[in-house]
């Protein structure tokens, strides 16, 4: 992306983010039962969306890397995995705060929350594997493989937790599953989702560029070392 476009995108992200913040804190009415705590919902859901979307990008980048062997896809995958981990961390931190006032418990083994937790483990592990591999090509290939396997595992995690919880505590799912949302809340949620999506696409090229520069730096160092020893 060129500089001007990137700046424009940064400006747009800022405006949408500001609008979302205004809607959440000034415009939308408080929820009747939960009060002001419910506002965390907008950030929570948006972060979850970005988390899942980021891991989907990791999956696609993994497939593309194995097909093309172009380092570009490895950078996209690793950048998206990092961003995804950050946003799922936000989900896992805001989830209990929301859950405490919605269900009266910090943590419930609700399929959504639990799947997010498992996902968080999977992708933190992916990042660990990356840092434990020295050779660039191998690191890219293995990360791609893990990104694919991890993403294919998501539905299994989701359904197994759902079936598990259905058989034992079916009512918890009910209480979290259906949310009566007013139209103002819907609008606010949509704008928040849009704002976070903008943020994701603002962050992604920056992290990709970082990965690219790291790799270029390594190549330069290697070249210099080669010159010195020759």
């Amino acid at each position: 992306m060129n500089k001007a476009l990137e700046n424009a995108w940064a400006g747009l992200t800022f405006i949408v983010m500001l609008a979302a913040t205004y809607l959440v804190f000034m415009w939308v009415p408080n929820e009747k039962v939960m009060g002001v705590v419910q506002k965390i919902f907008y950030f929570h859901v948006s972060s979850a969306w970005i988390g899942f979307f980021a891991f989907f990008v990791v999956f696609i980048a993994g497939i593309m890397y194995l097909k093309t062997r172009d380092s570009k896809w490895d950078w996209v995958g690793s950048a998206s995995a990092e961003i995804g981990v950050v946003f799922t961390t936000i989900v896992l931190l805001t989830g209990p705060i929301w859950g405490r006032s919605a269900w009266g418990a910090w943590w419930t083994w609700d399929p959504r929350l639990t799947t997010t937790l498992v996902l968080w483990f999977v992708y933190v592990a992916c990042l660990l594997v990356r840092s434990a591999l020295d050779q660039e090509e191998k690191r890219a290939r293995f990360s791609a493989i893990l990104g694919i396997v991890g993403f294919l595992d998501v539905p299994l995690v989701w359904f197994s937790i759902r079936w598990w919880r259905w058989t034992i505590h079916p009512n918890i799912i009910e209480s979290g599953g259906k949310l009566a949302i007013s139209s103002k809340m819907q609008v606010t949620l949509m704008v928040s989702l849009l704002a976070f999506t903008c943020l994701y696409f603002y962050l992604l090229p920056k992290v990709v560029r970082l990965a690219k520069h790291q790799s270029m730096l390594r190549e330069m160092k290697e070249a210099i070392r080669g010159r010195l020893t020759a």
Binding site: V118, F121, V122, A125, C126, L128, V129, L146, V149, G150, D153, L156, V157, F159, S160, I161, W163, W164
Partner: peptide, 14 residues
């Protein structure tokens, strides 16, 4: 174990 166990959560539950 760090990469294996999260992926095996579904199997372990079942």
């Amino acid at each position: 174990p760090i990469i294996l166990f999260p992926l095996l959560v579904p199997l372990l539950i079942a």
